[in-house]
């Protein structure tokens, strides 16, 4: 057993913990919270509601693997929603144009933050903290009051449901209802797939791990450390743009308070998904499970009748704390075993 633990890579070890935790949690939900969790649609609803979070978490996992951090993604999401909403409803814009705006905003944040962090060596936390405040502030400057978007093409897109074959269930009246997912879920799964391939199968992807694991060694191994960090932040910014648009597509409105605390949930998902804060260890599949675990817990909390909002915050923080300590302890133990 010990030998097995030793030979497992850090990434796989933490990934295993995550998946086990998720499965146990979902089983508990089915046992204690009744049949609701057995319906496929319950699971797909979790996906629908968290597609944006999945995308944001992918970006965060990437920067965290590289040994950095980004807490501006929630702010960027709000800014993207608001800008797109204003563009669609007040300037008669097209859906395509709004997608471009979202990408542009993400790209701009990624570029600027990446430059400051990678090439000027400024602490990533400070840069992205400022980025977060800037994005939140700009959101209210663009438009103060929340409103629902009424652009027809956009609403049609928002209402599009993609039927998942063979996964339906019978409702109360006995009619068969197909299970469905929204477009955002497809985008999110695509992002997960692309990021998985990028991190696992490409030269650049492995460079992220090397830089996060040990920047000095990575330099000696012939990797351009600064460029690698820059690319990580650039991709994270773009993903925040995409995630912002998916969020916008789900809620269909612009508001300054949108996605508040999303950066926190994204970081928590990444950590629960087995990404190490210290860098160099992490897995996109784990991140996906991290998001699912997090939202399952939220569902459990709300269906257990603990409706008060504070329970969610406390459970997430408790989970985060638990996983941080697990990481710290597991790594310390492994280090000791290697020394012997």
């Amino acid at each position: 057993m010990k030998k097995k633990l030793m030979n497992m890579s850090d990434t796989n070890l933490l990934l295993t913990i995550t998946i086990v935790v998720f499965v146990v949690m979902y089983l508990c939900a089915i046992i204690f919270e009744g049949k609701g969790f057995l319906k496929p649609q319950t699971f797909f609803n979790i996906l629908n509601a968290n597609a944006a979070l999945i995308i944001l978490s992918c970006g965060l996992s990437l920067v965290m693997i590289t040994g950095s951090i980004d807490i501006s993604v929630g702010g960027i999401t709000a800014l993207v929603s608001m800008c797109c909403a204003v563009y669609l409803d007040y300037h008669g814009g097209s859906v395509f144009g709004s997608v471009m705006i979202a990408l542009g905003i993400g790209l701009a944040f990624g570029l600027f933050q990446g430059l400051l962090i990678a090439y000027l060596d400024i602490q990533p936390f400070i840069v992205t903290l400022a980025g977060m405040f800037f994005a939140r502030g700009m959101t209210t400057i663009v438009h103060t009051n929340p409103f629902n978007v009424e652009n027809e093409a956009f609403v049609a897109l928002k209402e599009t449901r993609i039927i998942v074959p063979g996964m339906g269930s019978y409702n109360k009246n006995g009619t068969y209802v197909n299970a469905y997912v929204e477009i955002g879920v497809i985008v999110a799964l695509l992002v997960v797939a692309i990021m998985f391939v990028l991190l696992r199968k490409t030269r650049q992807g492995r460079a992220f791990y090397a830089v996060g694991g040990n920047g000095q060694s990575a330099l000696m191994l012939g990797i351009n450390v600064k460029r690698t960090k820059f690319i990580a932040h650039l991709i994270c910014g773009i993903l925040a743009g995409i995630g912002g648009y998916v969020y916008f597509l789900h809620v269909g409105s612009g508001a300054a308070s949108h996605a508040s605390g999303a950066e926190m949930n994204a970081i928590a998902s990444s950590i629960i998904g087995g990404t190490m804060l210290t860098g160099g260890v992490g897995n996109i599949i784990g991140t996906l499970f991290g998001v699912l675990s997090l939202s399952t817990i939220q569902n459990i909390v709300s269906s257990a009748g603990l409706d008060q909002a504070w329970w969610t915050g406390i459970t997430i923080a408790a989970m985060l704390c638990l996983f941080l300590v697990i990481q710290s302890v597991v790594m310390a133990r492994k280090k000791k075993m290697t020394k012997k």
Binding site: L116, A130, F133, R136, M138, T140, I141
Partner: peptide, 13 residues
């Protein structure tokens, strides 16, 4: 008050 943070962020940067 909500827009304040944008100005402060610029100062921080």
């Amino acid at each position: 008050s909500d827009a304040l943070s944008a100005y402060k962020a610029v100062v921080v940067i």
